[in-house]
Design a protein around this nucleic acid. Structure first.
Length: 486
RNA sequence: CGGGGCGUAGCUCAGUUUGGUAGAGCGCUUGGUUUGGGACCAAGAUGCCGCAGGUUCAAGUCCUGUCGCCCCGACCA
């Protein structure tokens, strides 16, 4: 007996009903993660990890094109080392995990499990940087870090998470600032091209910058529910860390100088961003560039003669082009397979059955918009191959990006007064607010207190909405992007 | 760290009010019939009822404690 009157997926909570539950449903049902007995520590399952591996591969290539080298630092930081930079330790101390014993021996200097590795890189740079000839160093590492969060959610906020952290050190401030901006651009390009996720590049306000940084830049994305998510950060440190850790080099003018540093990172949170940017009530929708399976082939009536042979032919054709293809010849019904791969976000599905074979065609369905098209199998499968490649490389990425951009546009509101902010949020729901700001922390706090939205960043791309601060009415310095954040 | 919810089969949950043989649906295994949107029949397997004490002839159920998870806030990638 059919139990689901036309409803394709019975198991997922709908987005409108409960977005948070929809999110965790997808994480579990698409087999991205599983919880463990340690709060905030997730098993990233093969399908979820494969997404991360694709993110890693693409980003790592981009880093290497820009001259970065990978290294690996220890996971432990002695307390004495962590203490060296005042702002840094104050920022991170509340959320570090401590190792206090080695076996049964109590440690003299307890060790923190790295929440981030600035201190380790600084200690190392102090050892290896002596001359301007040693600069720059463009280092990166792919590791996990630990932050003892109170509230945890898969991918968005876990106690241990995977990330990359780039740490660079340069002769001049200009060079370091250039590096900071270049890496922010690198992240934005990756998010927009590979993840099909539009982002706003901007600078964090002073109250929101990284502990120990002179300036923090970020890319901000808007999720489907109208909440903002910081998708990546890039920090300029000036010579503050160098001074705290005693890193000095002899310059071209034979003078002792402090070098200038940067750090930048993205995390497995990006997987959360993908889910909440593109997902729908049928499940995950994956950008082709990072989808573990880009095309799934579903044979219909597969026991009938010739069906599996033809399906295998299609599989081999696509495989030979370097696509990540899966042929599902399991005993599950076609309907089950359709729903399953939609849940898992596979960008393109190919259906092939006896009727198709008779007509020399197949059906190609596109996940993000649900469209189905009949495609010819004539011409030695060339037309078919070209159609699928065009979908994976062009049609789907562009379509997904535009859909996400459209959603962001519909949820971005320009406001001149606090009342307008409150009204916009009430009438249209959560989203980005663009509003002018005088630069005072007092006003920033008040906007958050009164309207509920905090400053996300000061966008690089500015437009003048008004010449006075949305809060105090004094002359405005910058347009700020505000929002409720994850 | 505040507020709320929940711990019983792999999953979703019933059973707790009023103590008395451990349950359902889904999933899983085997065999068969099916296959264009989560198929059907038959036969199976699966439980420290979160954990520790206590009350009782008897505890999934009552009492005390404890641990964990989820959601909403404050903080963070």
């Amino acid at each position: 007996m059919a139990k689901n009157n036309g409803k394709m997926v019975e198991a997922i909570t709908s987005m409108d009903e409960d977005f948070a539950k929809w999110y965790t449903d997808i994480c579990k049902k698409a087999e991205l993660v599983e919880y463990t007995s340690v709060k905030g520590c997730m098993v990233i399952r093969p399908y979820g990890y494969a997404i991360w591996e694709n993110i890693q591969r693409i980003l790592d290539t981009m880093f290497k094109e820009r001259g970065h080298e990978n290294v690996c630092m220890p996971m432990f930081i002695p307390e004495s080392l962590l203490q060296k930079e005042k702002d840094h330790v104050e920022g991170f101390a509340p959320e570090v995990a401590w190792v206090t014993h080695g076996g049964s021996e109590k440690l003299e200097d307890r060790l923190c499990v790295r929440p981030t590795s600035e201190t380790l890189f600084c200690e190392h740079y102090a050892n290896i940087v002596h001359s301007y000839r040693d600069l720059p160093k463009l280092y990166n590492q792919w590791v996990s870090v630990v932050r003892w969060e109170k509230t945890t959610r898969p991918f968005l906020r876990s106690r241990e998470f995977l990330w990359q952290e780039g740490h660079t050190i340069h002769e001049t401030a200009d060079e370091a600032i250039w590096e900071t901006e270049r890496m922010l651009d690198c992240y934005a390009e990756f998010c927009e091209k590979s993840l099909c996720m539009p982002v706003v590049k901007g600078r964090k306000t002073d109250s929101d910058k990284f502990a120990g940084a002179e300036a923090t830049y970020a890319i901000e994305a808007l999720m489907h529910d109208g909440k903002a998510l910081q998708a990546g950060t890039s920090h300029y440190f000036g010579d503050g860390f160098a001074r705290a850790f005693g890193i000095q080099y002899t310059s071209r003018e034979n003078k002792l100088e402090y070098p200038h540093q940067t750090s930048w990172g993205v995390t497995t949170r990006l997987i959360g961003a993908i889910i909440m940017t593109h997902g729908d009530d049928n499940g995950l929708v994956l950008p082709p560039a990072v989808a573990p399976v880009q095309v799934v082939i579903v044979p219909i009536a597969q026991k009938k003669e010739g069906v599996l042979d033809k399906a295998t032919e299609l599989y081999e054709k696509l495989k030979a082009c370097g696509l990540r293809v899966k042929l599902d010849d399991s005993d599950n019904s076609p309907g089950w397979k359709f729903a399953e791969y939609e849940m898992r976000g596979v960008p393109v599905r190919v259906e092939i059955g006896p009727k198709d074979i008779e007509n020399g065609q197949c059906v190609v369905a596109t996940r993000f918009n649900g469209e189905k098209a009949v495609v010819s199998l004539e011409n030695n499968l060339e037309t078919f191959k070209d159609t699928v490649i065009d979908l994976i490389e062009n049609v789907v990425p562009e379509g997904m990006f535009n859909k996400a951009l459209e959603n962001r546009k519909n949820k971005t509101y320009q406001c001149k007064t606090m009342d307008e902010i409150i009204k916009a949020l009430e009438e249209k729901g959560d989203g980005f607010i663009e509003a002018m700001w005088c630069g005072e922390e007092e006003c920033e706090d008040k906007v958050k207190e009164v309207t509920g939205v905090g400053s996300r960043c000061i966008p690089n791309e500015q437009h003048e909405l008004s010449d006075v601060c949305v809060c105090c009415g004094k002359p405005a310095k910058k347009m700020v992007l505000w929002g409720k954040a994850y």
